[in-house]
Amino acid sequence: MNENEKQMTEAESLSIISGMINHARNRFSETGHLYLLWGVVIFVCCITQFIMLYFFKNQNAYYVWYATWVVVIYQFYYLARRKKRQRVKTYPDEIIGFVWFTFVICSFILVYILIKNNSVNAINACILVMYGMPTFLSGIILRFKPLRIGGIICWLIAISAMFTTYQYQLLLLALAVIAAWIIPGYLLRAKFKKEN
């Protein structure tokens, strides 16, 4: 009898099914690269702006944030390259993509509304509230605790940001970036290397 058409026992069938489902389930595709990249860039921007404001009283220090556009361009390139190399699309990958897409759109609209209403002081706190959402949800979808903790820390820092001035909010933002991007980014990278 052809090997492909041979009769299987019920146990053999179940073993094939569970083996294949495990293959797909245990595939960890998040390298943490973008978390680390954004983490370091935002951290550097926060600290640079703070130093320029605090020590040099430079009111044009916000220009430092234009550096993020370079990262946005790189991100498009990186994601296109990753998509090209990807041999399998999983539902978690797709859902996480949409979660972050939602965050970016909502954040842009929110920042626009806040600027229009002269509520610049609330921008950092609102961004942190928003940022906690995709971080926490990514942690749930990827079953990765550091991201869930990072999301919660963002929300706590967002509340404390309401009691400080814009200048010191930059330091809180830097702290949130360490908790929600840099530490989980390193841990994700380590997990990816271990499992792939």
Binding site: I16, I17, M20, I21, H23, A24, V88, K89, T90, D93
Partner: peptide, 11 residues
């Protein structure tokens, strides 16, 4: 069966 089980778990 292996192919179907694998495809069931991914998009």
């Amino acid at each position: 069966l292996a192919v179907i089980s694998l495809l069931l778990s991914v998009k």
